[in-house]
Write a protein that binds this DNA or RNA. Structure first.
Length: 173
DNA sequence: CGCCAGATTGACT
DNA sequence: GTCAATCTGGCGG
């Protein structure tokens, strides 16, 4: 897992993030959780993307591959990984995690940030060389299902939500 | 500076 | 199933 991973198309990154383990170090404790649900977001041509607006979120989506993008909606923090390539604004939203060594609800984008203690403090930090949050390599050969994205009012024609089949920790079946 | 929509959640009928 | 709390970013709706 290195920087070039986040220089691929958002859909590919969203698919391949499934099965990766997100590690969050708090003090001397490491909370580990497996990524089981993601969504891909594109730039200008994506009506649901924050890159359409001309503010800080768009700018963040143009930062280095592996940059964390954390933004608030309805009093919840949502975690994204930026995967810019060739100046394109793209990101992948993490929608659900399977807790591996702790108890806590992670079956929704707002819930998982609460459980993993991720907030605006992490906005614009980079995943690589980070001492508080990082990713471990993915499992292979997962069975992946796809659907339209959840909660967006204007979606693309393409199904851009990906999740591990039969996993009970996804936000919706 | 005020207004509003929104990649949500939880409580309630 | 419905609905409102809650707050941030973007923009002048």
């Amino acid at each position: 897992m290195d920087k070039s991973f986040f220089m691929q198309d958002a859909e590919k990154v969203a698919r391949e993030l499934l099965g990766c383990v997100l590690v969050r170090k708090i003090g001397n404790r490491e909370k580990k959780a497996r990524i089981v649900e993601t969504e891909a977001y594109y730039g200008e041509r994506d009506p649901a993307s924050r890159a359409r607006q001309n503010g800080d979120l768009r700018k963040t989506m143009l930062m280095k591959p592996g940059t964390l993008l954390v933004y608030g909606v309805h009093n919840n923090w949502l975690l994204n990984f930026v995967n810019s390539r060739e100046g394109k604004a793209e990101a992948v939203l993490i929608r659900a995690l399977e807790p591996l060594n702790f108890e806590g609800k992670c079956n929704g984008p707002g819930l998982l940030t609460k459980s993993m203690l991720i907030d605006k403090r992490f906005h614009k930090q980079n995943l690589f060389g980070n001492k508080e949050i990082w990713l471990k390599k993915r499992e292979k050969d997962l069975v992946i299902e796809r659907s339209f994205r959840i909660g967006v009012s204007k979606d693309l024609k393409k199904k851009l939500r990906f999740y591990i089949k039969n996993n009970e920790f996804v936000s919706r079946k």
